[in-house]
Design a protein around this nucleic acid. Structure first.
Length: 278
DNA sequence: ACATCCACCTGCTCGC
DNA sequence: TGCGAGCAGGTGGATG
């Protein structure tokens, strides 16, 4: 999504902004009128992200922050069409080219405008609580390993905790744990250095492969800025694969309940710990 | 400070 | 066909 935004909107000057509904800007305290006024006339200078948060730096130093939540998407479409039911915001540009839309069915996504200075590692201060993701230079594997072993929780919870490491959600956590042959309930404090190394290697591989594939598109909600699907779903080893044979050992993949959601794993490759932490 | 739970939403699919 | 239950790729504020 970040790469798509870079391609479609960087370098363009915003001519008009519209906001639909009142949930999308719930994190923008000054409200929609302020949001619109401060974006109009600005040029987008870059497209950045940390984990699952995106931001578009503007030519006046402010940053348009975005999170897609569960069902948010940015789409570039020919200018002037009627916004669809779930369109929450739209930006038109003074070059008359494609407009940008933010669409969001479940409304867990959101937009905000931050005009304060970036923190030392180049991230808007509003995202200060979000840890570096494994693909950025600021990510420190040794520091992550040390923090992990100080925690008293299960390894999957830790992977999903964006204050520990960002960018990993339910799918990529399950995929990385399968690649590293770890059960999700393994306690973080009992992980051996080699296992943490394996896990980090797996996380890195999974994230890079998923990005290279354009993401994981189960349906039309999960598409790139140009509307195209990613194809990482064809590389999924466990997520959504209950009943399918494990590609390593042939054992049937199972689905388990895990904190009101699902975890998929191979019961043989990822043996349950004697004293697990969920 | 840390760990965990739950609310926040819409829409689709499934079983009865 | 209707209806309720369950489920969906996340986050952050409240509560232990």
């Amino acid at each position: 999504m970040r790469a798509g935004l870079e391609h479609w909107v960087v370098g363009r000057r915003i001519a008009a902004v519209e906001v639909f509904g009142d949930r999308t800007l719930r994190r923008h305290a000054p409200g929609p009128a302020d949001f619109i006024a401060r974006l109009t006339g600005r040029t987008i200078t870059a497209a950045r992200r940390r984990g699952k948060f995106l931001w578009l730096p503007l030519d006046d130093g402010a940053n348009l922050l975005a999170h897609l939540g569960m069902s948010g998407q940015f789409l570039a479409v020919p200018e002037g069409g009627k916004p669809s039911k779930h369109t929450k915001a739209r930006w038109r540009f003074d070059d008359g080219g494609p407009e940008l839309r933010f669409c969001d069915q479940r409304t867990f996504g959101g937009l905000a405008l931050a005009d304060d200075e970036l923190s030392a590692d180049g991230v808007p201060r509003a995202l200060g609580h979000v840890a570096p993701d494994p693909l950025e230079p600021a990510f420190d594997p040794r520091r992550f390993a040390a923090t992990l072993r100080r925690r008293r929780t299960g390894v999957k919870r830790a992977l999903l905790d964006q204050t520990l490491v960002s960018g990993i959600g339910n799918i990529y956590a399950d995929e990385a744990l399968w690649h590293a042959k770890l059960h999700f309930a393994r306690g973080t404090d009992g992980l051996r250095p080699g296992e943490i190394g394996r896990l980090l290697g797996a996380v890195d591989d999974v994230l890079r492969a998923a990005i290279a594939a354009g993401g994981t598109s189960f349906d039309a909600l999960y598409v790139a800025v140009n509307g195209e699907s990613g194809w990482f779903d064809r590389s999924l080893e466990v997520y959504g694969q209950a009943g399918e044979p494990c590609s390593r050992c042939g054992t049937s993949i199972i689905r388990m309940r895990f904190t009101n959601r699902s975890s998929y794993l191979c019961p043989k490759c990822q043996p349950r710990p004697r004293r697990g932490r969920w």
